[in-house]
Simulated scan of single mutants.
Amino acid sequence: MGKLGDMANKAKELAKGHPDQADKGVAGAERVADERTGNKYDAQTDKAADAVRRSYGSGGTTER
C-alpha cells in the first residue's frame, strides 16, 4: 500500500481509539465545508460525515 493508504489506516486506528475526539474533528470539518459552500451541499456533507463515523465505529453523531 502507498503512503496515502498507510496514513489513512493510521488515522482510522487512531480514531477508533479516540472516537469522541474524532467525532469532534468530523463535525468541525463538516461545519467548515458547509460554511464555505453556503450549505449548498449540506446533504452530501451529512452523508460523508456519517460514512466517516461508520468507518471508525462511532455510533453517535455530534451536533454542529
Rank of each mutant, 00 (worst) to 15 (best):
residue 29 A to P: 00
residue 15 A to Y: 01
residue 48 A to P: 00
residue 62 T to S: 14
residue 9 N to I: 01
residue 30 E to R: 12
residue 21 Q to N: 04
residue 20 D to V: 08
residue 10 K to F: 09
residue 1 M to L: 08
residue 19 P to R: 01
residue 20 D to E: 15
residue 49 A to H: 06
residue 62 T to P: 00
residue 61 T to H: 15
residue 51 A to E: 14
residue 23 D to I: 00
residue 1 M to A: 11
residue 59 G to A: 06
residue 50 D to E: 12
residue 8 A to K: 07
residue 2 G to P: 09
residue 50 D to L: 10
residue 27 A to T: 04
residue 32 V to W: 10
residue 40 K to P: 01
residue 45 T to N: 14
residue 11 A to W: 03
residue 8 A to Q: 13
residue 18 H to Y: 06
residue 2 G to V: 02
residue 46 D to T: 10
residue 49 A to S: 11
residue 44 Q to C: 03
residue 18 H to D: 15
residue 33 A to M: 12
residue 35 E to M: 14
residue 8 A to R: 08
residue 31 R to Q: 06
residue 41 Y to V: 01
residue 16 K to V: 03
residue 30 E to Q: 08
residue 26 V to L: 03
residue 13 E to R: 09
residue 8 A to V: 14
residue 43 A to F: 12
residue 10 K to V: 01
residue 20 D to R: 12
residue 27 A to Q: 01
residue 55 S to R: 03
residue 60 G to C: 04
residue 27 A to V: 02
residue 30 E to F: 00
residue 58 S to V: 02
residue 40 K to I: 05
residue 48 A to S: 08
residue 35 E to T: 11
residue 41 Y to H: 14
residue 61 T to W: 05
residue 12 K to Q: 07
residue 58 S to F: 02
residue 23 D to Y: 00
residue 11 A to N: 07
residue 15 A to R: 00
residue 12 K to N: 11
residue 42 D to W: 04
residue 10 K to Y: 06
residue 37 T to M: 13
residue 36 R to I: 12
residue 59 G to C: 03
residue 29 A to R: 10
residue 22 A to D: 02
residue 31 R to V: 00
residue 33 A to H: 03
residue 37 T to R: 02
residue 12 K to L: 15
residue 26 V to Y: 00
residue 4 L to H: 05
residue 52 V to A: 15
residue 59 G to E: 15
residue 39 N to E: 10
residue 41 Y to K: 03
residue 5 G to L: 12
residue 22 A to K: 01
residue 25 G to Q: 09
residue 26 V to C: 08
residue 15 A to C: 04
residue 48 A to Y: 05
residue 60 G to T: 13
residue 24 K to T: 09
residue 13 E to Y: 07
residue 16 K to L: 01
residue 55 S to A: 13
residue 10 K to I: 01
residue 58 S to D: 14
residue 46 D to C: 01
residue 53 R to I: 01
residue 33 A to V: 01
residue 34 D to S: 15
residue 32 V to R: 15
residue 8 A to Y: 05
residue 9 N to S: 13
residue 50 D to P: 00
residue 14 L to V: 10
residue 21 Q to V: 12
residue 38 G to R: 05
residue 43 A to S: 14
residue 55 S to Y: 06
residue 58 S to L: 07
residue 35 E to P: 00
residue 18 H to L: 01
residue 44 Q to A: 13
residue 2 G to F: 05
residue 39 N to K: 14
residue 15 A to G: 04
residue 6 D to N: 12
residue 62 T to N: 05
residue 53 R to G: 00
residue 42 D to I: 07
residue 49 A to M: 04
residue 19 P to K: 02
residue 53 R to K: 15
residue 5 G to K: 08
residue 29 A to M: 15
residue 3 K to D: 13
residue 31 R to W: 08
residue 56 Y to P: 03
